[in-house]
Computed example of a mutant assay.
Amino acid sequence: MLNMKSRYAMRALLYLAGRYGEGPVQIGEIADSQRIPRKFLTVILSELSREGIIGTKRGRAGGYWLEREPSAISYGDIVRITRGSLALVPCAARLAYEPCDNCVPESECHLRLVMLAVRDATADVLDRLTLADPLPGQVELPSQRAEAPAQPVQ
């Protein structure tokens, strides 16, 4: 499950993607429009700035903007920055691997194999979708893709 930090980060970044190229956007505008507590948003935006996802400028004419084009920021990037991993269990993480507490040896753990498959499928979707992609509901998922039936020759 996504934590609130990841969800707020996605909402804020989607808002900034909609304003891409227009210059800095004030934090109050982002917070109000996306219904994100301002103090929490400040922490999130600071982290995204340290990671090079957004730029920031202080002062009256300052604010926040995307440092990269929306098409260069995947949802997978956002989750990894704000959550640390796409895995649902620590032993299925690729970059932040940890053995699970109170578990059977990994060589005997069938759950780990399932969670690795879930993590890989999740990564496939989240790394492919970017802030520039169509809104949810308009995204064609792999399971929805089907080759068009061949048209009969007349």
Rank of each mutant, 00 (worst) to 15 (best):
A72S: 13
D32Q: 14
Y20M: 01
Y8E: 01
I73P: 05
E22T: 14
G59W: 09
L88C: 08
G23I: 05
A17K: 05
E67Q: 14
R112M: 01
E106S: 07
R19K: 15
F40S: 12
V25P: 05
Y75N: 00
V89F: 08
P90C: 01
P105D: 00
G52E: 04
R60S: 09
A12K: 02
R80Y: 03
G63R: 01
V79N: 04
L111E: 10
L66G: 09
L95W: 09
V118W: 11
N102I: 10
A96M: 11
R35D: 14
Y20H: 15
R19G: 06
Y15C: 11
I53C: 04
G62W: 09
I73Q: 07
G52I: 05
L113S: 10
H110D: 13
A17N: 02
Y97L: 04
V114M: 09
L48F: 12
L113Y: 07
Y64W: 15
G55V: 04
V43L: 08
A9R: 05
V43D: 10
G55P: 06
E108K: 13
M10T: 09
D124G: 10
R35I: 07
S49G: 07
I81A: 02
Y75H: 06
R60T: 08
G21I: 04
L111Y: 15
V114P: 00
L41N: 04
A96C: 09
Y97D: 04
E47T: 08
S85W: 05
C109W: 04
G59N: 09
I54E: 07
R119C: 13
E106G: 01
D124Q: 13
S71F: 09
A17S: 06
L95M: 10
I30Q: 07
V25T: 15
T122Y: 15
I53E: 02
E47N: 08
R35C: 06
I44V: 10
N102L: 13
I36W: 02
V104A: 11
I27M: 14
M115R: 15
R94P: 02
A93D: 12
V89D: 01
A93G: 08
L116S: 03
D120V: 03
D77M: 13
S46I: 03
T42N: 05
E67A: 13
P99E: 14
C100W: 13
R83T: 12
I44L: 05
L45V: 05
G21T: 05
T82M: 15
V118E: 14
P90Y: 00
K57I: 04
G84E: 03
E22Y: 12
A121V: 08
A72C: 08
D32P: 00
T42S: 15
V104F: 06
L111A: 14
A31L: 00
I27L: 14
